[in-house]
Each structure stands twice: as structure tokens, then as C-alpha cells.
Write a protein that binds this DNA or RNA. Structure first.
Lengths: 118, 118
DNA sequence: CTGATACTTAAGCAACTGCTTGTCTATTGC
DNA sequence: GCAATAGACAAGCAGTTGCTTAAGTATCAG
């Protein structure tokens, strides 16, 4: 299960770099070899491979080598997990806003009864 | 406008640390002072302040000082921006799956006509 | 077999992170 | 005023990150 906290660390860490986000944006459109990934990027091939290792460690990307070419593809479930964490925070926030709204509504309607239960 | 790429960098970088995610999870339930934020965390107060600076630099959190206490609160729009980037990737992925599905459906129905347009 | 292709591995380096401790400055309560 | 509180500021330090260049290995094409 690999802790789930550590996994989120690695996913967000992986997405924190523009080069790696560009690689994700490329791979989301379909698999690619390492050199295809490297072609548009302004850096050496070993640098790209290192970014790829970060993406693989996060679980966002997998790759297999066939012959002399390594083909990389996205693992969309991990992307969804990151989205879910953020979404969870957002819904907590929205529920809190709702509760605050309810309290305000209560406050404005009761001038006859100053004590509410609890 | 502050480049939007750099902003995503900072947001994901901010979320990549478990301490900072814990601070976000705390603040999403309502504002808190620096020492309130620090209380559950196993580190010195200056360390917490440094994490707070990262969160502020990302735009995720704002704070104002009144008297001697600095009160921090979430800026939920920035959280939504990060969610939107991930969501955008996911929908691109899903559209791609749909297209692949369509192609497979075409392929399996036409044994009479081997050439499709383009 | 021979050269080109597609990576792989390793070492090195400047910059950045995530802490620490120590000191210092503003409030606030009495 | 005086002490306790809430935080600010700075230096230092081990470990990580994001590159680089240089040198390797394994395939494939002719």
C-alpha cells in the first residue's frame, strides 16, 4: 500500500517541475520513447532520464524496454489520487462555507428568541 | 498575472510536503494563528514559519498580523487552479480513450472496406 | 563485422530545502 | 515598569535537486 502519504509527496513533488509537467502533458496524449520525450526539451538526454525516474518513482509513469527503446506511458489512477486529495480539501472548505451561511441565516431571522439550542 | 506556470510550480511544490499539507488541512477548517498551526507539529516554531512562507509564496495561504498575533487563512482559488490542471490532463486522457474506443469499433465492423478516410 | 542508434551509468557541482539554535523586537496582562 | 507571550530574523548545516559532461552497453541496419 506504500503509505499513501509518501505517495502524495512524490506525486506533488513530481508535478512541481515544469519539465516533468510537460512530459506528463506529452504522455497523456499517448506513449512515447525516451528520445521522443527529450526532443522538445532544452536539456541533455540524461537529464530527461532523471526526470523520468522521478515520474516513475511517483507512480505517474511506467515504462518498459523493448529492444533498445524504452516506451513510457501514463498511469492515470495516480493523477486521480492527487486530484482527489485537492478535491477533498475543496469540499471541506465548501461545507464550512455552507455552515457559516446557515449560522448567518439563523442570526438574522431570530430577534425574538436570543438563545439557540447548544 | 505572474506567469501561471511558475504559480503551478509553487503550488505543487507547496503541496509536496506533508507538514504543509497538514497546515492546509488545518486552515481549510478555519483561520489559525501561527502558534495554533505549530502546536500539533513536531518541529520548532521558526520551521513552521518557514513552511508558512512557502505556502504564502504559492498563494495558497494569506495572513495578516493584528497586535502580536498573525492570523492565517486559506485562499481556495489557488487550490482550484491546481485541481484544474490535473483535471485537464484527466479529461484529455479520457477523450483519448474514447477515440481509441471508436477506432476499435470501426475496425471490428468493417471487413468489407479496408481503407478509411485519412 | 561495423557503425549508428538508444539509451545507461557515474561523477561532479551549484543551488535549494528543511531543519536547527540563538538572538532580537513588538504586544499584552498585571 | 516587568515578565510572559507571539512572532521575526539570521546564520549554519546536512541532505536533496537539477543539471552537466564523459564514458559505457546493448541493439539494429547494412
Amino acid at each position: 500500500m506504500l503509505n499513501h502519504e509518501v505517495r502524495l509527496d512524490r506525486v506533488f513533488q513530481a508535478l512541481a517541475d515544469p519539465t516533468r509537467r510537460a512530459m506528463v502533458e506529452r504522455l497523456i496524449r499517448g506513449p512515447a520513447s525516451v528520445s521522443e520525450l527529450a526532443k522538445p526539451l532544452p536539456m541533455s538526454l540524461p537529464a530527461v532520464v532523471q526526470h523520468l525516474q522521478v515520474l516513475e518513482a511517483s507512480g505517474l509513469v511506467r515504462s518498459e524496454k523493448v529492444g533498445r527503446v524504452r516506451t513510457c506511458h501514463i498511469q492515470p489512477g495516480v493523477l486521480r489520487a492527487a486530484e482527489a486529495w485537492i478535491g477533498g480539501q475543496r469540499t471541506t472548505w465548501e461545507r464550512r462555507l455552507d455552515r457559516l451561511g446557515d449560522l448567518l441565516a439563523e442570526d438574522s431571522q431570530d430577534s425574538e428568541d436570543s438563545e439557540e439550542k447548544e
